[in-house]
């Protein structure tokens, strides 16, 4: 149980770092979606199924979709505003 949580946590932090540091925006959004998914698994480990379902449905499902939808609408913008600072 402990080992699994450790693994999940490390994965989550990895996903978060990828989401922040990566250049491509789609990759970043996907990483955030993955993070959400991992989070819902952690919620299961922390004995809160309700939250897990919500996180899965809304967190990874809808949020990621919203991002892709807006990204689609703003495709050209992504290239031009891509550089970090």
């Amino acid at each position: 149980m402990l080992a699994m949580t450790l693994l999940l946590c490390v994965a989550m932090i990895g996903a978060a770092l990828v989401a922040i540091r990566t250049d491509g925006l789609p990759v970043s959004i996907l990483a955030a979606g993955l993070l959400s998914l991992l989070a819902s698994v952690v919620f299961l480990v922390l004995a809160s199924p309700d939250v897990a379902m919500t996180e899965a449905a809304i967190g990874s499902g809808l949020t990621t979709f919203l991002f892709f939808f807006v990204l689609g609408r703003v495709r050209s913008g992504e290239r031009e505003g891509g550089e970090h600072d």
Binding site: D50, M53, A57, G61, L62
Partner: peptide, 25 residues
């Protein structure tokens, strides 16, 4: 199913709504 059995099994209005929305999506 999810939002009708909200008071029995984990899940509820929000989760059910989200699933329905994904269907519409």
């Amino acid at each position: 199913y999810v939002f009708v059995n909200g008071h029995l099994t984990p899940g509820g209005g929000f989760q059910g709504g989200a699933v329905v929305a994904s269907g519409v999506l």
